[in-house]
Amino acid sequence: MTPLSSFYSPLLKSVGLAAMLALLFMLYIGLWRDPSHIPSAQIGHMAQTFNLSKLSDDNFIALEDYKGKWVMLNFWASWCGACRTEHATLVQAGKDFANTPNIALIGINYKDQKEKALRFLKRLGAFPYPSGQDPRGRTGIDYGVYGLPETYFINPEGKIFFRHVGAIKLEQIKKAFAPALKGAS
């Protein structure tokens, strides 16, 4: 054993091997993740207020109108393909929760034109709940929207507790509203 080879002690070797295996494992996990998915930075924080003109008439819709309720906020647009996929689900959810007083669903038409949005609703069926217009996308930026569709869930205290990116399913909406339904009954 020369002095030089004693440099590479068993400790160094095992640490090296362990680090290598950890790296490979991490890369494996990374394969199944979507690198472009950004988790919401506002979970647990107060939702930003908004006051937008409604899509259906000339009135306004504001978040504080729904203070004390469980709110689902869905960002959609006529140019968004995946929004078509979830449209039927949202309409159904709107009907299902129409008679639950402490649950409210709101749509936000993001970076869209009124005529195109209305045409979209005419073709696919109107939402049984109101939508506000966000033509510049400012409200979207306030919520940290980076792609459509995105759905936010707000509790009666006004804090965001869940965000879903992509087309949402009915079970996911029901699961998010589970505490609301428990309280209601």
Partner: peptide
């Protein structure tokens, strides 16, 4: 970014 996401979920 990958390590942080795997361990803490943060981006």
């Amino acid at each position: 970014p990958l390590i942080a996401e795997v361990i803490t979920g943060a981006k």
